[in-house]
C-alpha cells in the first residue's frame, strides 16, 4: 500500500475561459481533496492553459481526483505521471547586514543568484526541484530571511 499522504503532481490542460479555475478549485474543496500548490498559465499559441497541481493522497484518491477533473467540461487532458521534470522558484529577502557572499554561493548551487540589492535588504532567487528548494530554505534560515515566497511547482512529463 502506498502512503496515504503521498505527494502527487497532476497536470491539467484546460480551455482558457472564464471561471475555469474556480471549477477546478471547487472540485477540490467540494470533494475534500487538498491542494498543496497550484500554478496556472496559458499555453503559448493555443486556447488552452496548463495547471500544475501538487496534492496528496492514496492511489485511490488520486485516481478519483483525476477522473473527476476529467469530467469537467473544459478539461482537455489530465496527466498524473510519476516521471516528471519538476521545478519551483523561490524568492528570499535578507537584511543587508547578512553575509551576501555566502548566500550568493548557496543560491548558485540551486540555480539561483542575487537578483536585487537595496539600501536595507537584498533579494535572492533559486529555481530547482521542489525537494531541493525545500532543502535550501532550511539551510538559508540561519541567515534570517525576512520574507520567502515560493512559486509552487511546474512540471512536464518526460
Amino acid at each position: 500500500m502506498q502512503d496515504e499522504s503521498a505527494r502527487r503532481v497532476i497536470s491539467v490542460i484546460v480551455v482558457n475561459e472564464a471561471s475555469v479555475l474556480s471549477r477546478i478549485t471547487d472540485l477540490f474543496s467540494g470533494r475534500g481533496y487538498n491542494i498543496t500548490s497550484l500554478t496556472v498559465a496559458p499555453i503559448p499559441d493555443s486556447r488552452y492553459s496548463r495547471l500544475t497541481i501538487v496534492t496528496s493522497g492514496s492511489i485511490r484518491v488520486i485516481e478519483q481526483i483525476t477522473k473527476q477533473l476529467h469530467k469537467l467540461i473544459p478539461v482537455l487532458k489530465v496527466y498524473e505521471h510519476a516521471d516528471l521534470v519538476e521545478k519551483e522558484m523561490a524568492l528570499m529577502k535578507f537584511p543587508i547586514s547578512e553575509n551576501i557572499t555566502d548566500i550568493a554561493t548557496l543560491c548558485a548551487a540551486y540555480n539561483g543568484k542575487i537578483v536585487n540589492v537595496g539600501d536595507n535588504v537584498f533579494i535572492a532567487m533559486v529555481a530547482d526541484e521542489p525537494k531541493r528548494v525545500e532543502n535550501l530554505l532550511k539551510i538559508i534560515s540561519k541567515y534570517n530571511p525576512k520574507e520567502i515566497v515560493r512559486s509552487g511547482a511546474v512540471a512536464l512529463e518526460r
Partner: peptide, 8 residues
C-alpha cells in the same frame, strides 16, 4: 458511462 463512478 461515467468513468468516475467506476472503482470510486
Amino acid at each position: 458511462i461515467d468513468p468516475a463512478s467506476i472503482s470510486k
